[in-house]
Amino acid sequence: MGLVPGLVKGLGVTAKALVKTVTQGAETVQYPHVKEDPVPRARGVIALHQDNCTSCMLCVRECPDWCIYIEGHKELAPPRRAGGKPRSVNKLDRFDIDYSLCMYCGICVEVCPFEALFWTPEYEYSEIKIADLLHDKSKLSQWMETVPDFESYEAGAEVKQKKVPR
């Protein structure tokens, strides 16, 4: 025990916090009126860049609670150069993520080999009906606008800086 007994010191801690809140304001913000900026890498919602998806189904199979649904087909697109062979490209018929099941583990984003899925920090997408939490491909694509740029690497990093497809 020091000069001041611990019990009195404890009262001092709460009293100090009381005075600080009254004079300098609280640490919290009043949510619906004031919004905190989420950090850039916050896991809010997953965005889909449709052109990059090849329906490889890796995300579907890795998803721990099976909340991603993909259906797609191949289409022939005109060749890049005149006289070439028509290209075969993937078209998505369906790409749904059920956010009532999603647990925000981010495995789908990590496992995607073609950079089609991205985290965005948006968090205000609650719904009255649970079925509305199933986001289809158009809604998932809309989230792309909110994807922040990747943070720049350390100076002298040998890996090329990744870019978010816009």
Partner: peptide, 13 residues
């Protein structure tokens, strides 16, 4: 109010 201030929040507003 007092307990909210002691926990650095505003309490009911």
């Amino acid at each position: 109010k007092m307990v909210s201030f002691m926990q650095s929040r505003l309490g009911p507003m």
